[in-house]
Computed example of a mutant assay.
Amino acid sequence: MRIRLAEDADLKVVADVTEAAYAEFTRGPDDPYIAHLRDTASRAAEAELWVGVDEDGVILGTVTRCPTGSPWREVSEPGEGEFRMLAVAPEARGRGVGEALTRHVLDLCAAAGEDVVVLSSLAEMSAAHRVYGRLGFRRLPERDWSPNPHVDLMAFIRDGRTS
């Protein structure tokens, strides 16, 4: 698998992959969060939208790194890295795509001097939590939060104590 920044021609496919990966965690086709998940143009312009592609160029997964100053940051503090919307196409699950994308983001954060990396995740996203645990993340309950009354997000952190 090769990891690269998403290009304009990728944005619809990235939106489709992200929506499909999150489908089991949304409240159906009318969930307003779906529009947010599909807003790949804003993520590409206001953050870093990365894709993992196979040898034929098929997009297998995606992740958004939220550098300092990005409006896509949610739980990070100054000097910390953050990423969001890790999504693996359902047909590509179990192939290490999510872990490879997460490792890539961790490398980008380290290169930017961000030795602490944080993220938010739904409690139901246990497969992602296993990846995060393998990569040294631990729970950060003091930063848990709710963007709306029906969504409770858990915070995770990777720092020098968990590397």
Rank of each mutant, 00 (worst) to 15 (best):
E55S: 12
D16Y: 10
R138H: 02
R84C: 03
T68M: 13
Y132G: 03
M1R: 07
V14K: 03
A100M: 14
V14N: 02
E142C: 11
L122H: 09
E82V: 03
L153C: 10
T18I: 00
L5N: 11
D30W: 06
E55H: 14
A23N: 04
I59F: 09
A23D: 11
G160Q: 00
E82N: 04
P29L: 05
T26D: 08
C66E: 06
L135G: 00
F137V: 03
M154L: 15
S70E: 06
V13W: 07
R95I: 07
L122E: 07
A100L: 09
M154K: 11
E80S: 04
E74A: 10
A155D: 13
R103K: 14
S120G: 15
G113V: 04
D30N: 10
T40Y: 05
A87I: 01
S126F: 10
R161A: 05
V118S: 01
L37Y: 03
A100I: 08
A123L: 09
R27D: 14
G136H: 02
G94P: 05
E7R: 13
S146I: 05
V116T: 15
T26N: 15
R103E: 15
R158N: 04
G57S: 11
Y33I: 12
V17P: 04
A123Y: 09
V116A: 09
R143E: 12
S42C: 10
H36E: 14
E55R: 15
L108A: 06
E80C: 02
A35Y: 09
E7F: 01
S42H: 13
G113P: 04
M1P: 10
V97I: 11
V51H: 03
N148Y: 05
S163I: 01
C66R: 06
R84T: 05
G69V: 11
A87G: 02
P141I: 10
V118D: 03
R158K: 06
L106Y: 01
V13G: 05
D107K: 07
L119Y: 02
V131S: 10
V13S: 11
M125V: 06
E142K: 13
A110T: 09
D54W: 07
D39Q: 10
L5C: 10
G98D: 09
V51K: 03
S126Y: 10
